[in-house]
Design a protein around this nucleic acid. Structure first.
Length: 851
RNA sequence: GCCGAUGUGGCGGAAUGGUAGACGCAACGGACUUAAAAUCCGUUGGGCCGUAAAGGGCCCGUGCCGGUUCGAGUCCGGCCAUCGGCACCA
């Protein structure tokens, strides 16, 4: 038996052939303005994939789903006469390469290089039309030089609340510029993971365990670099409105930013001279009369000053316990509320009542003012707390329905609140806030859930900070000292004390006799925050992106520069929020022309295994693209990925499904090719340079319309269906008109570029006037007039139920349709003896007789 | 708990408020073949009726219950289920 399985068409030969041709001719290279071959007459289209982390495992079938969609768009837009920027690169800093280095001592750069080569190879096999001249790698010093440079711009600026934008730090007039920089150092309670020897961002902690490895994570105060993303909260929120993103993702970002409007209210501390007031934030100032206690976060700085002598021991003990708790334990909802009394009292500014001040860990230091006014009657948490510790509960909001007022958290009517009695919650909020403002007791305030971005990592394989320390103060390197390259190490392990691995490089650290280098590195997000900009001008060594290139590729009249960005929902908040933040800083400082990076965002759904389960090694249901391509070819792989269903939807892989799509491509092949006695494929004699028949024209134009519309709306599955219908119809035809099949091949090209290129070439050998490559053609147009039918089938319904069909001329009037329908014997019979009450006529569609 | 998405044949999925199930898979039947594979042609939501045979006819059907409408998979209200995300944010 031959080990060579007979192939339905020779994809194994034509696919490598065309990939080599594309490479050689650099067909998909997009020249920049000013470069040779640049055509300024064409509009631009920037279509971007979320670039991958090149892991050792190689590509899985999920990656190429989005990549195929963007490749179809890219090829389609080129055929429609756009200058298309369609690049690919590597987000190559990251933990796996570093952990491999720790295990084997092999430098992560080597691992990275190998993995990148493997990924690139796999991508090339699928036939993507990337402009490989623009390939970038975040771990390349010529790339991260500019990541470090952007960090310096952030470090050297501050957010001016008056202008509502970032400005150079030199415009800051205050005493301590370090306190307002967009990049700053703070002692913060961080998520420390002993096992990984590093701190983690909140987003990297899942259920109190590290996202990578699942190791325990505890809170611990450490000196860290932070980026002041909170300064941009309002703009990050508002400027979402004009982006063409899925509503779900926008909502996700809005929730993450978490704007809430309310008031800050100052409570006088009774009998304390050193602490005049405690400020709390509330979204419900209208419930102030119901405030029967205050709660501070255990770490709140005023706690030390207000605790009474006799309460000190319990307070100290409670705080110690709270500090030891992991985030998981602290946030565990099922547990009961805890807290201790400080011994101190405050005065409720509305009631003038003396109310006790407690500390409890359900109040978070990082949100609002780290202190709350307890209104147990109208807040679930406060109610639990009050019940547990027997604190008074006062109802001050009356629900409008007949719900119980106790524990009612909705909006109602204010009661037992002299100043605002009888007002709705909304009115009451306004009035009480104004009342507080008049007396200097509080003011309107807005709070965000969004926290500043913890930007340092105790790792080796990341961008080193271009910062040195001298006499306890940090300062920036100057631009000429970039890139700052990390030193070679013998041992990549974290030191375990929280000191990063770079601390092992004694020589490297020593910057001068007095100054030492920062040893933290940047998180993996850093490189992906601006890579889309670098793609515009990847080889520029004077600037992170050339002005002209940035203006051209990021241009257009929308706020976002990238015309289409495709990737998974896992980046709904983090990457997409961070990139927007950097873009805005660069925009404010005048380095880029757009306030937003990505105008249109599309999320591809995940591909499940054949068993309808998430693909994973342990389930053994992973599908490797290489195997699929070996068996059925890259074109079949691409088309199947798109044929499975709507792009955004989650859907399971099916081996049978791939076979079906492969059969379709084989039918396309045999439509044009016949196999000779000798087993050679040659162009079919059925193809003739003749005019298409009327029905053939109709089908072709219907197909052009459907495929065009479906590509525009990302409905690739139905575009393929239509092409199948076309091919099915033409398989039984004796003579295939040349012009018809040419147009079809162009439609197919974005989906199945190899087979369509090959067949196009075969046609051009026979018919000399088709000398050019298929990629140089233009997208076919359709003629609406050809789609119009002369006769249509009209559905006849009685009371909305299908009862008959009649053929009628297109031009039939409503009257004619009505008469024809009522004349049908079938219909006559059914309406006999009944009164026709109404006849609804939808021209060209149906007639509904109501009896 | 809150937020979001999704529920259509044996399966993946199609359907501007107007013929539910396009296209593909699977299954079945046929052609070709010594045979198989491949290929080509046909049938295929469920139930029932009818006829010598064929064409045919009727009822039900898009998670469930209501509503709007001449007409609802599609719009509205209320449930249920599955999958994601967030989770003491005052």
């Amino acid at each position: 038996m031959s080990s060579e399985r007979r192939r339905p068409y020779p994809f194994d030969q034509i696919e490598p052939k065309w990939q080599a041709i594309w490479d050689e001719r650099q067909l998909f290279h997009a020249p920049n303005p000013g470069e040779k071959g640049f055509d300024s007459q064409k509009p631009k289209f920037f279509v971007l994939d979320m670039f991958p982390y090149p892991s050792g495992a190689g590509l899985h079938v999920g990656h190429p789903e989005g990549y195929t969609a963007t490749d179809i768009i890219a090829r389609y837009k080129r055929l429609r006469g756009f200058n298309v920027l369609h690049p690919m690169g590597w987000d190559a800093f990251g933990l796996p390469a570093e952990q491999y280095a720790i295990k084997t001592g092999q430098h992560p750069a080597i691992t990275t290089r190998e993995n990148v080569a493997k990924f690139k190879d796999q991508l090339k096999r699928i036939g993507f039309s990337y402009d490989w001249q623009r390939e970038i790698n975040t771990t390349d010093p010529t790339y991260y030089k500019w990541t470090q440079w952007i960090f310096l711009q952030i470090y050297n600026s501050w957010f001016n609340p008056e202008t509502n934008r970032a400005e150079p730090i030199s415009t800051y007039r205050g005493p301590d510029p370090d306190s307002v920089r967009l990049a700053y150092v703070a002692d913060v309670a961080v998520n420390w993971c002993q096992e990984l020897g590093t701190v983690l961002a909140n987003e990297e902690v899942v259920d109190g365990k590290s996202e990578v490895g699942g190791f325990p994570v505890v809170r611990r105060p450490m000196r860290q670099w932070m980026l002041r993303i909170t300064a941009y909260a309002e703009r990050l929120l508002n400027e979402l409105d004009h982006l063409d993103w899925p509503e779900g993702i926008k909502l996700h970002q809005r929730n993450w930013i978490g704007r809430s409007e309310g008031a800050e209210i100052d409570f006088k501390v009774a009998s304390s001279r050193c602490v005049p007031t405690i400020r709390v934030f509330t979204t419900r100032p209208d419930t102030l009369y119901g405030g029967t206690f205050l709660v501070l976060a255990p770490e709140h700085s005023l706690v030390d000053l207000i605790v009474t002598e006799e309460q000190w021991p319990v307070v100290r003990e409670y705080r110690e316990r709270a500090a030891l708790k992991s985030e998981l334990e602290r946030v565990d909802l099922s547990k009961e509320k805890t807290g201790v009394f400080t011994g101190a009292f405050a005065i409720n500014p509305a009631t003038n009542a003396k109310i006790p001040i407690w500390i409890a860990d359900y109040v978070l230091l990082g949100y609002g003012t780290g202190a709350i006014g307890g209104v147990p009657a109208h807040d679930q948490r406060d109610l639990e707390f009050a019940k547990k510790f027997d604190l008074p509960i006062v109802v001050v909001v009356q629900p409008i329905g007949n719900e119980p007022a106790m524990g009612f958290t909705g909006e109602g009517i204010a009661v037992s609140s002299p100043i605002i009695n009888g007002l709705t919650s909304a009115e009451a909020k306004k009035k009480i806030t104004a009342w507080l403002e008049e007396r200097g007791l509080g003011k309107r305030a807005i709070n965000y859930k969004l926290r500043d971005w913890l930007f340092s990592r105790q790792r080796y394989w990341g961008e080193p900070f271009p910062i040195v320390w001298q006499a306890g103060k940090h300062r920036a390197l100057n631009e000429q000292q970039l890139p700052l390259v990390p030193p070679l190490l013998d041992d990549y392990k974290p030191i375990g004390t929280g000191e990063p691995p770079l601390a092992r490089a004694r020589e490297w650290i020593r910057y001068s006799d007095e100054a030492v280098r920062e040893t933290n590195t940047m998180p993996q997000w850093a490189g992906s925050c601006w890579y889309y900009l670098r793609f515009c001008d990847p080889h520029n060594d004077q600037r992170f992106v050339g002005e002209e290139a940035e203006h051209y590729w990021m241009g257009g009249n929308k706020p976002g520069g990238v015309d289409l960005y495709v990737g998974g929902t896992e980046h709904a908040v983090l990457h997409l929020l961070y990139a927007r933040f950097w873009q805005k800083v660069l925009f404010d400082l005048g380095y880029v022309s757009k306030p937003e990076p990505f105008q249109r965002l599309v999320n591809q759904g995940i591909i499940l295994g054949e068993d309808n389960q998430k693909m994973s090694k342990s389930r053994g249901n992973i599908v490797n693209p290489d195997d699929v391509i070996d068996q059925h070819g890259a074109d079949a792989f691409r088309c199947y990925e798109m044929f499975m269903g709507p792009l955004e939807q989650m859907k399971p892989w099916s081996t049978r499904g791939v076979e079906g799509v492969a059969r379709f491509l084989a039918r396309v092949w045999r439509l044009l090719m016949t196999e000779s006695q000798a087993g050679e494929w040659e162009l079919s004699a059925k193809i003739k340079d003749v005019d298409a028949t009327r029905p053939q024209q109709k089908l072709l134009h219907a197909t052009i319309k459907k495929v065009t519309d479906d590509i525009e709306s990302f409905s690739f599955n139905t575009a393929i269906s239509q092409m199948m219908i076309f091919v099915n119809a033409f398989t039984s035809v004796e003579i295939i008109p040349l012009s018809t099949i040419r147009a079809f091949l162009i439609l197919l090209n974005p989906f199945a570029p190899h087979i369509s290129s090959e067949l196009w070439e075969k046609l051009s050998r026979r018919f000399a006037e088709l000398a050019e490559d298929i990629t140089e053609q233009s997208w076919p147009a359709y003629d609406e007039r050809l789609l119009v039918e002369d006769e249509v089938e009209i559905v006849v319904q009685i009371n909305g139920k299908l009862r008959d069909r009649i053929k009628m001329p297109m031009a039939a009037t409503e009257e004619e349709l009505k008469t024809a329908a009522l004349a049908r014997p079938n219909i006559q019979e059914r309406i006999a003896g009944k009164t026709v009450r109404n006849v609804i006529v939808v021209p060209k569609k149906l007639i509904n007789i109501v009896v």
